[in-house]
Write a protein that binds this DNA or RNA. Structure first.
Lengths: 173, 173
DNA sequence: TTAAACTTTCAGTAATTATTGAAAGTTTAA
DNA sequence: TTAAACTTTCAATAATTACTGAAAGTTTAA
């Protein structure tokens, strides 16, 4: 084997590991992040078997993980004329990936919390009671922050890539 | 018991649960998020015993969780004249809390990944090889995005609260 | 010093989360 | 139809992560 391809193989391995670790630190199943990483660096769509073999995971795991990735809008199924097998392909556009992840996590995790915070902000109590006052202040403050984050993500999701790269810079002048 | 205080007790419970759930979805230990939530809505500093009792957790768990929260810069130990007991108090300023969490996660998780991405961006390969080209493009794109996020967090961490609330709005004009 | 009042540690265990693999299900082509 | 080629499901199990509780450690006051 050539040295260059050795290096590339090692680098790919390292990327898959790093992506898996980052995912698990942020509440995303390690295997799911690794399958995503593998597809991100694969020029061609891969079959379930190729993914199973490369990552040493079972058929069941591969199948469910791929279904999840499709549910997150990060991967698509492809079919080839005259072939039964299914192929899986990841969107390689990093900006799309970021937007998609932001969109899903907002919907799945942030929005439900904002709903609860709205309810809790409306709980009435004795304006003299420090227990009530502290509760109320923390809840309303967190609610405001969460809504700001929500609005920011919403704008980001709708925005074009060029906006993002330009706007970050402007933001800090 | 009065109806109003019943409502408050329920609301507190709900807040602690919601915060714990959000934490665990984002890779933060559920108990740690719950202890933090409890301290956030407590006007006075609490003892280990009070926390143990309120959340039904063991002494060992409470002790280690509080140590972690202190390590995250979210909670401080307090002492009272003539008392052996230690009291724990959470910073109630939501903006500080957000900055602190951003700061720690950036240091613990984002920076190490950027280091790896820098290495992987420098892996050389055959410019004709689609395997190499796809790997290289994904890695460098993700690296750029990660560095942008890093820079944004850095600015946010150094910024004042007023900047945040004002700037978000300006950002979207 | 002693001992009471407290905090810390960590081996053992419980709870949670992820994975396997084989059986059931589906599709296609002959 | 049949059966080969494939995908999906899910109960059982493994791996990981979190928690307990009792013993060891520390501090303070008498």
């Amino acid at each position: 084997m050539l040295y260059l391809s050795m290096e590339l193989a090692e680098a790919k391995q390292k990327f898959i590991e790093a992506w898996g670790k980052l995912g698990s630190e942020w509440g995303i199943n390690r295997t799911m992040a690794q399958v995503h990483a593998l597809l991100l660096i694969s020029p061609e769509a891969l079959t379930t078997e190729e993914i199973m073999d490369t990552l040493s995971i079972s058929r069941g795991n591969a199948n469910m993980t791929l279904r999840d990735l499709i549910g997150w809008g990060l991967v698509e199924k492809q079919h080839r004329a005259g072939e039964r097998k299914e192929y899986f392909f990841a969107d390689k556009d990093t900006w799309n990936v970021a937007k998609q992840v932001a969109k899903e996590r907002r919907k799945r995790e942030l929005d439900p919390v904002i709903k609860i915070l709205d309810e809790l902000s409306n709980v009435k109590g004795d304006g003299q009671d420090p227990e009530y006052l502290t509760f109320h202040k923390s809840v309303t403050d967190i609610n405001k922050l969460a809504k700001n984050v929500d609005k920011t993500l919403d704008t980001m999701i709708k925005a074009e890539e060029s906006w993002f790269w330009g706007s970050i810079v402007k933001m800090f002048r």
